[in-house]
């Protein structure tokens, strides 16, 4: 089975690289909520995707989780 986001082999839909990036995106969400007081999940994903500091795999995962 191929990864949803690249050509690499995947176990449950994502390759190990995108799986690790997904964990990073998920674990950073509470930090963003705390930083801004409140933030919806989708708004967070948009922000992560747009941010120039976000890594390539994390950007791809943010778009994937948002359903782009």
């Amino acid at each position: 089975m191929k990864c949803h986001l690249c050509e690499r082999e995947a176990v449950s839909g994502l390759c190990p690289y995108h799986e690790a990036a997904k964990a990073r995106v998920q674990s950073a969400y509470p930090l963003w909520v705390r930083a801004y007081g409140r933030m919806e999940w989708n708004e967070y994903l948009d922000n992560v995707k747009r941010n120039v500091q976000t890594g390539q795999w994390a950007k791809e995962i943010a778009g994937f989780l948002k359903g782009d």
Binding site: Y17, A28, Y36
Partner: peptide, 12 residues
């Protein structure tokens, strides 16, 4: 490279 590509920034 993995650290760079997985990176998620946190605001401050």
């Amino acid at each position: 490279e993995k650290e760079v590509r997985e990176f998620v920034p946190v605001p401050f």
